[in-house]
Design a protein around this nucleic acid. Structure first.
Lengths: 165, 165
DNA sequence: GCTGTGCGCTTCGAATTCGAAGCACTCTGG
DNA sequence: CCAGAGTGCTTCGAATTCGAAGCGCACAGC
């Protein structure tokens, strides 16, 4: 007899679709705002934000790529753009000669500061306008374990490298 | 005195970041599965799913674009691909000569049926593995109003057309 | 120390994406 | 009925995205 076809009940479907829709709509609006306010794409913003959050202001390429869920080649491209714009610096890592350390510059922090208020405002209006503080707590409490679960399974955004012949 | 700088408390920030991360990770995995199982991109899957859900199996281009939060030109491209693959049909609308009606074909429904179980499985494992039925209810209850709120503000995914000179 | 495997990043080519502009049709007001 | 404005879609060009392949360093094991 066949496996039970994996299936989602209506509530699950509803939650799933709502999640997809909400994140698409949110991302779309946020893209707009970042573009207008500071000529940044969402990925670029995420990269700067992560670097700005980091105690050292630096991260390895790979860790950035995994952090924002981006392909490595895509990250190379974006890092190049950010570097050309002077928002970021790339330098070979001290300990591992293969690896590249990306560091946010003062200009990068300024840009971040410039777009941040508007960014927050958009998120505030779209997402938190209709959520009470308790709702927010609940949402975070629901999504955080999910994120951890998703992060735990395949740590790398890239598939395990195919075995060489 | 200056406006209160719009700001998010830590709980809000946490919820926001978790949402972004969860949807990125989920989408990434789902893309993989759809590609492997049925050679569909996520957008294409969404389009077929929406058409399949529709009572008539048809939708206008614009409504599809808004539904999946996609640019109109992007939708034209994707509709072209789906049509070339025989999963979808495009025809001028009866009532409005400008508009194009997209209809899912039997092959489209088959493709949908082919990838769906695996799709569900991925979502199940990544998203619902760690959520109790009550959690799912709560998540849907939180996100649905948010979606409605986001949908209500700017109905169109495209910015209002710039005034013609 | 040497060799083979694996990792970190970049380069390359192909596919996708978007906004601006263009075309055709619809609708409103005079 | 006609002009003007708006809507629906496509075309066009430029920018982004990804995976596959390539390069060099790191780190076993012998």
């Amino acid at each position: 007899m066949p496996d039970t076809p994996p299936s989602l009940d209506p509530a699950q479907l509803g939650a799933y679709f709502a999640l997809v829709e909400v994140s698409s709509l949110l991302r779309h609006q946020v893209e707009q705002q970042l573009r207008d306010a500071g000529d940044l794409s969402f990925v670029q913003f995420q990269l700067l934000a992560r670097l700005g959050d980091s105690p050292t202001g630096s991260q390895r390429m790979t860790d950035l790529a995994d952090g924002v869920v981006y392909s490595r080649s895509g990250l190379t491209y974006q890092a190049g753009l950010l570097e050309k714009a002077g928002l970021v610096t790339r330098s070979p890592s001290a300990d591992d000669e293969r690896s590249v350390t990306v560091t946010i510059t003062d200009a990068g922090r300024e840009r971040l500061a410039k777009v941040f208020p508007g960014h927050i405002e958009v998120v505030q209006q779209l997402l938190f306008e209709v959520l009470s503080p308790r709702d927010v707590q609940a949402l975070a409490a629901l999504l955080t374990p999910v994120r951890d679960h998703m992060r735990s399974t395949p740590p790398r955004s890239a598939a395990p490298r195919r075995r060489r012949r």
